[in-house]
C-alpha cells in the first residue's frame, strides 16, 4: 500500500488532483453537463452543500461572468468568483440568507452534491440523505426561476421512489443520471430535474420542511408492480475513464506518473480535536488494576465475578441465531 494505491484504485481521484479539482466529484458535474447541457444559458447558480468546493469550482469556470453562491455547513476554503455562506440549509436563517441573494432575479440552476456523513446504518443514512435533498428542494422552490433546473445527489435505496414522486410534483422532467465517473459499486446517482413548474397555487414556505412522500396503493406501491421509477441515463461517453477499473500508474496517453498531493485537505473536521489528543497520547485510558503494583503479596487478588463455566448460552439453547462452533 502507500500513498499511490488510492491513485491506482481510483483514476478519477488521481485526475482530479492532477487537474486541480478539490474532489473527484467535479467530473460528475462535467459529465452531467455533457449529457444535459446544464450550464447552457445559466448566469446565476446555487451550490448547496458545496464543501470541499469542487462543484463550485466547475460552476465558476463554466458560467462566465455568472453569479455563484456556495453554501455549506462546514467551513470551506475560499474560491475566486464564488460567494460563500456557511450554515445549515435545513435551518430557516440560512435559507433566508440564500434567498435574499436572489430576490428579484431568480437562479437558473440549483445543484446539491451533499451527503451526510454516513453512519453505516442504511435506513438512517437514506433518510438523512432524503432530508438533505428535500431541504435543497425547499430552497430551490424559493430561488429557482420557472423552467429552471435542479440537480441533486440521491441514494438509490429502498425508498428512492418516494423522492421521485416528490420531485415530479415540481418539475416537468425528472431523470436519474449516473455519470461514468461515479462508481458502479456506489448507490449514489443524480436526480436531474428540468423545467421547474410548481403546482398551481403552491406557495413556497420556509417554515415548513418538505416531508417525504409515503407509499401510495394507487400510483407508488411498496411491493406492487406500480412504482415511480424515473428513466435512467448514463452520462459521459464510453471513451471516458472507467471509475471501477484499476489503472496502472502509467496511463495510456503516455504521460509519466508523478504523485500529486490532494488539492484541498479538509478544514477543521469534527474529529480534529480527538485526533490531536490521540496523537499526543492524551485520550482517556482505562484505569487498569495492574498498573498500580502491589508491593507485598499479602492479599492475593480477589476473583472477578466469574460465572461458572459453560455459560455460553448458544450451546445450551437452540434458537434462531448465530452460533459459532469451532
Amino acid at each position: 500500500m502507500g500513498r499511490t494505491s488510492k491513485d491506482k484504485r481510483d483514476v478519477y481521484y488521481r485526475l482530479a488532483k492532477e487537474n486541480g479539482w478539490r474532489a473527484r466529484s467535479a467530473f460528475k458535474l462535467l459529465q452531467l453537463d455533457e449529457e444535459f447541457q446544464l450550464f447552457q444559458g445559466v448566469t446565476r447558480a446555487v451550490d448547496l452543500c458545496a464543501a470541499p468546493g469542487s462543484w463550485s469550482q466547475v460552476l465558476s469556470q463554466k458560467i462566465e461572468g455568472g453569479h455563484v453562491v456556495a453554501v455549506d455547513l462546514q467551513a470551506m476554503a475560499p474560491l475566486p468568483g464564488v460567494l460563500q455562506i456557511q450554515g445549515d440549509i435545513t435551518q430557516l436563517s440560512t435559507a433566508k440568507e440564500i434567498i435574499q441573494h436572489f430576490e428579484g432575479c431568480p437562479a437558473d440552476l440549483v445543484v446539491c452534491d451533499g451527503a451526510p456523513d454516513v453512519t453505516g446504518l442504511h435506513d438512517v443514512d437514506e433518510y438523512m440523505q432524503a432530508q438533505l435533498l428535500l431541504a435543497a428542494l425547499n430552497i430551490a422552490t424559493h430561488v429557482l426561476k420557472p423552467g429552471g433546473c435542479f440537480v441533486a445527489k440521491i441514494f438509490r435505496g429502498r425508498d428512492v421512489t418516494l423522492l421521485y414522486s416528490q420531485l415530479r410534483v415540481f418539475f416537468s422532467s425528472v431523470v436519474c443520471a449516473k455519470p461514468r465517473s461515479s462508481r458502479n459499486s456506489s448507490i449514489e446517482a443524480f436526480a436531474v430535474c428540468q423545467g421547474y413548474d410548481p403546482p398551481e397555487g403552491f406557495i413556497p414556505d420556509l417554515t415548513k420542511p418538505l416531508l417525504d412522500h409515503s407509499y401510495d396503493p394507487d400510483f407508488n406501491q411498496l411491493d406492487g408492480p406500480t412504482r415511480i421509477i424515473v428513466p435512467f441515463v448514463t452520462c459521459g461517453d464510453l471513451s471516458a475513464y472507467d471509475s471501477d477499473r484499476s489503472y496502472p500508474l502509467d496511463l495510456e496517453d503516455g504521460s509519466e506518473y508523478k504523485y500529486t498531493p490532494p488539492t484541498q485537505p479538509p478544514i477543521s473536521p469534527p474529529y480534529q480535536e480527538a485526533c490531536t489528543l490521540k496523537k499526543k497520547g492524551q485520550l482517556a485510558k482505562e484505569i487498569r488494576p495492574q498498573e498500580t503494583p502491589i508491593n507485598i503479596v499479602d492479599v492475593l487478588p480477589q476473583p472477578l465475578a466469574v460465572p461458572p463455566r459453560h455459560t455460553l448460552l448458544t450451546s445450551e439453547v437452540e434458537d434462531s441465531d448465530m452460533n459459532c462452533s469451532p
Partner: peptide, 25 residues
C-alpha cells in the same frame, strides 16, 4: 453490534479487586 452479535459484560465498579501485578521482592 453491527456484526449482529450481542454480548453481555460485567460491570465491576471503581477500583475493583481484580487481577494485578505484584512484585515478589
Amino acid at each position: 453490534g453491527d456484526d449482529s452479535g450481542i454480548r453481555l459484560w460485567h460491570l465491576v465498579g471503581r477500583g475493583y479487586p481484580g487481577s494485578g501485578v505484584s512484585a515478589l521482592c
